[in-house]
Design a protein around this nucleic acid. Structure first.
Lengths: 161, 161
DNA sequence: TACAATTATGAGCGATCGCTTGTATTTTGT
DNA sequence: ACAAAATACAAGCGATCGCTCATAATTGTA
């Protein structure tokens, strides 16, 4: 009926959960590809440029497949925080943490762990909400303003204003 | 078995959805009670104090019933963004927007709508994540630092540094 | 073409879902 | 004390769920 029959599906995936996991894996990997290079590149940039790159890449990541991303963001907690997502998250977290350490003397925050948490959470939440709930904010004529705003938010938070 | 039987349940609620809606309504109202006074009070405060109040009240709101809040945050998208939640969100958004307008001359952001979106999204995301996923950040000895950090984030973002 | 191996199919299985309904129990009114 | 009204209860209904398996269609080999 819808391209493949139930039976065929279960020849390739042992369970529905496995199927969903595979979909998530693919999506995660697509995001990884878009993301990783940019983040590594950002690691070598000064704070303002790195922040901007971080924001841009987060937007791009969320734009890979917004509809699927939205559905997954709803469903994943039920599946139980899939390992690959967790891993991607941890990787991003570690990169940010490492960046902060490398720029310790230019940064004015007391607790780098807390700062990493704040940065990752803020950028993820803002880009996620913008892409999925306020697409107007990312329209061609407004997107730059959004990136500018969030970049400034990050830079000033780090005390590098 | 669990306090009330299925039959009794369906004497008071026409459907499961209605039951869930009632639970959400109660939770929303509890948060409203905790929140509204503080937000109105914050409206009369200078930026730094208002920001701090905003952050504190967001934490308190998320602490009302963290476990329930977590479950609801997962389930609500499916129920279809219940009206009361939507209303509470809009109210918070409007309050922030009004505050920003009232303090227009002390604030250095280009777009007040965008700023309101950023502020609400950031505080909601940070407190939500902190309460539900990083409770260590809100331990007695660390909570103040978190509030300080986020307050500073908001204040600096608004250009009132 | 004939046969074997592989892959696709969907009717239908048991389990679980939201929900109804007949009965048992409690509360109320007299 | 008794009947009537209101409330509590859980067995079980149909519908749907994830999934299996006997069969059909396709592909590979000779």
């Amino acid at each position: 009926m819808a391209g493949v029959s139930i039976g065929s599906l279960y020849q390739y995936f042992p369970s529905k959960e496995a199927l969903v996991a595979a979909v998530i894996d693919r999506h995660t990997q697509e995001i990884s590809e878009v993301t990783r290079k940019a983040l590594v590149k950002a690691a070598a940039l000064p704070i303002e440029a790195a922040a901007r790159e971080f924001v841009s890449v987060a937007i791009d990541g969320h734009r890979v497949n917004p509809k699927l991303h939205g559905v997954l963001a709803e469903q994943i907690p039920h599946v139980g925080r899939l390992q690959n997502i967790e891993a991607l998250e941890q990787e991003g977290y570690a990169l940010v943490r490492a960046y902060l350490e490398a720029h310790r003397d230019e940064i004015d925050v007391a607790d780098l762990d807390l700062a990493a948490f704040v940065l990752v959470t803020v950028v993820e939440a803002l880009t996620h909400a913008a892409v999925l709930r306020r697409p107007d904010i990312l329209s061609d004529e407004k997107a730059d303003r959004f990136v500018d705003d969030v970049t400034r938010l990050l830079v000033r938070y780090l005390g590098a204003s």
